[in-house]
Design a binder for these strands. Structure first.
Lengths: 359, 359
DNA sequence: CTGAAAGCGCTAACAC
DNA sequence: GTGTTAGCGCTTTCAG
């Protein structure tokens, strides 16, 4: 092929622009940074013309090296394969965008190691604000970065347990997971169910433990002794991507329903598990909700579309994240230094057709 | 509150390490970059000790400014809310990770403007390899960056139409979308359907147009004149996030089924639309597949779990992306400069329970 | 085998 | 109003 060879040209710098516009780099920089207050409009026009002519793109890398900050937020989530986190990420991005920030999305796949690696990498790329969607049990590794100046927002976890000095510069927000677990369980109890299964993957996050606690608490209040045989928790598989949420829910439902402790209702740790459980119930020739009632958690879009539509505990993440992202950016810009605090939001039980009284 | 005040400390630099290890920055840099061939092991030990002691983290920003490259890949996708792209992103990340690259995930929400902004931002942050998951009709804006040295992989689109000189440094890969559209349509035709609806959002991407072409082509071969009334395309809503895939599919199915041109089968542009369409069919009191057959595209995990399980055209993205990500990184590292080429992969029709012969 | 020095592109004092 | 200058933290010749 005798095509013209594409030769990467030397990048255009602020110097080139200054030269062409017959001015100095600092003036160009001033324009770049919006300090146009007392700039002769003619100079400005010359610079803008030069920029266009050269198709100049400022190097963020150089800028960062100088300023120590990038207008970027890191967002570390457990799994992009779970649409809950996809939608979650979109709401964070939207909130960041209105402030001129971009989002560096990191899928840590529920692996604390990876989470840490990402935090490290974000830090070293000049990102100074990070949002944790997942909520590792221990925040210790993260705290190291906070000490260096990283600004952090933690979703899905109360941080009441950590060092007050640290806590005061971390914001955290979550739904009341225990309450959510209780609501789901009480709903099932109210319908008349007495043997309720709990379906979950590894209980490695604070939120999962809290949901389990809510389940236990509701049972206790109803005078039902918790049966460990009804709490199904994937353990064999140390690899807990959310792609497998379906698979695990399906498997768990089958095992719980076939086992000796057979139950009439299932509360799943999230909608992926719940939807998988629906399939597991069908695998056994049973029907939802006639034979088995199922409640999920999150309210992903598919929950409504699914057949039967899924009863679930909704997390209003959009309403939650917009203010908290705004706050994070304010902090990064030094526009807010009130001590951080934890906000708890009430979840909402969404009644649909996957639950009914037992036979 | 009288807590100790957390004071961000001055970042540790390579100088600090050198000073403490009683050597020079360049020697530290050599170690950092694996040039330990002829370094006295004692020097090395001293440096390592110093690094640990100071908890030193090299600044990627500074390194980048120097080297002009970051070990990062950009991945621009149409919508993280669509699990297809979530899973897609995971496979790209996995492939990148084995080569020590991280992935900067960008959700452009099917907006060419945003796509461009992200490409720009990635470029300015030193990212030199970008994967486009979405496939804008025009690649012109991207080409500007390619001219400057950006390495690009395009998924989901044949690039046969662009300047050969450019084409030779772009890799592209896609399933044969037209073939996929044809397979879906032929399957429906084989079952005995004669009035087939086509359900899509805005036909702004190459792949969507190709799928439509496959549909048309199959109808043509079967001697059926295409009826424009059977091609439903969302137009009113210029905001085409994939969250709305469900909504649009649902709406489209209802309109098509209620309209004058009523049909017995639907081919949807992707699984989100198809699953939404299933709900739309139920809204009308009809059943899938007894009254209406539905075929999707992608084979997202939900497709199997859904009730009824969805017949769909599978894109084997995992098998497709691993080699192509590897190739991209080879190119970035100068380990491969064969001219780029387009690879077309055959899609696979996955037969499930959402299709059946018409009444 | 190790060190000194230049400079990547930009910003922010501080002069003029 | 605009220009000069000194780095940000790292890599990379090139001397020693």
């Amino acid at each position: 092929m005798v095509g013209r060879v594409v030769m990467p040209t030397r990048p255009i710098t602020i110097q080139d622009v200054a030269l062409l516009a017959q001015t100095s780099p600092s003036t160009v920089s001033n324009l770049l940074n919006g300090r146009v207050g007392r700039m002769r409009s003619e100079t400005r026009a010359r610079i803008e013309r030069a920029m266009n002519e050269l198709d100049y793109r400022p190097s963020q890398v150089a800028r960062q090296l100088r300023t120590g900050q990038a207008p970027i937020l890191g967002l570390i989530i457990p799994s992009v394969a779970n649409p809950f986190w996809g939608a979650f990420a979109q709401s964070v991005e939207a909130a960041a965008r209105v402030r001129g920030y971009q989002v560096f999305l990191c899928d840590a796949e529920r692996d604390p190691e990876q989470e840490l690696r990402y935090a490290e990498s974000l830090w070293s790329h000049g990102v100074r604000g990070v949002i944790f969607g997942s909520s590792p049990l221990s925040l210790d590794h993260v705290l190291g970065f906070v000490e260096r100046g990283l600004r952090v927002v933690v979703f899905d976890r109360d941080i009441g347990d950590i060092d007050p000095a640290m806590r005061s510069i971390i914001d955290s927000i979550s739904v009341d997971n225990e309450c959510g677990g209780r609501m789901a369980t009480e709903h099932l109890l109210d319908l008349g169910h007495r043997r309720l299964g709990f379906l979950s993957g590894p209980l490695r996050t604070a939120s999962r433990l809290e949901r389990l606690e809510g389940y236990r608490c509701a049972l206790g209040k109803a005078g039902i002794a918790p049966d460990p045989g009804l709490i199904w928790q994937e353990t064999a598989n140390e690899n807990f991507g959310d792609v497998e949420g379906f698979e695990l829910g399906r498997l768990g439902a089958r095992e719980l329903l076939r086992g000796p402790a057979s139950c009439t209702a299932l509360f799943a740790i999230n909608d992926m598990y719940a939807l998988g459980a629906c399939a597991g119930v069908r695998d056994l020739g049973l029907r939802v909700p006639e034979d088995v009632s199922i409640v999920g958690f999150d309210d992903i879009p598919f929950a409504e579309i699914s057949q039967p539509p899924l009863t679930t505990v909704r997390q209003p993440f959009r309403e939650m994240m917009v203010p908290v992202v705004t706050l994070l950016i304010d902090r990064l810009q030094g526009a807010n230094d009130e001590p951080g605090e934890h906000v708890t939001v009430a979840p909402e039980l969404v009644l649909r057709a996957s639950t009914a009284p037992p036979r």
